[in-house]
Amino acid sequence: MANHDDASEKQDETRTGTTEPRKKASFALPVIKGLANTLAHVLRREPNTIHYPEEKRTPYPGYRGEHRLKRDELGREKCTACFLCATACPAFCIEIVAEEAPWDDREKRPRIFNIDMMRCIYCGMCEEACPCDAIELTPIYNIPSRTRGEKIYDKEKLLSL
């Protein structure tokens, strides 16, 4: 809009003499369309709600639920404790302490890997930052707990998910 051509606008004004009032918009048709939509939902047979604890909704692909740590083909954790997830995390909810890995092909692994799920904002930045594809957000969304302590997931818990 900033680059609007002033010269041509002036020309238009001189041609028509005055600026015409805008046409009155008709809202009738959209309103009818909307009401028809509502009516269609009212008359539809199956309900939109589900009986939650018995029935479970399948999340859409890409849904960001609880984290898990992946294992490689030998069953070892893929994580190399590079701290990139903790660095990327905007909520500072990942705590890692590294140790030397006992395997020949890997130098480093996490001794402690804690995620504070109460603090996590489920943004998925950790998953994106991971160079080893070791952490991912699962579609698990029913995540209540009785205590706050339970929501700090340690390495074993994250690997078992």
Binding site: C82, F83, A86, T87, E100, K108
Partner: peptide, 9 residues
């Protein structure tokens, strides 16, 4: 200092 910390932290 090996594996103790990442320097940017």
């Amino acid at each position: 200092f090996k594996f103790e910390a990442r320097v940017w932290n």
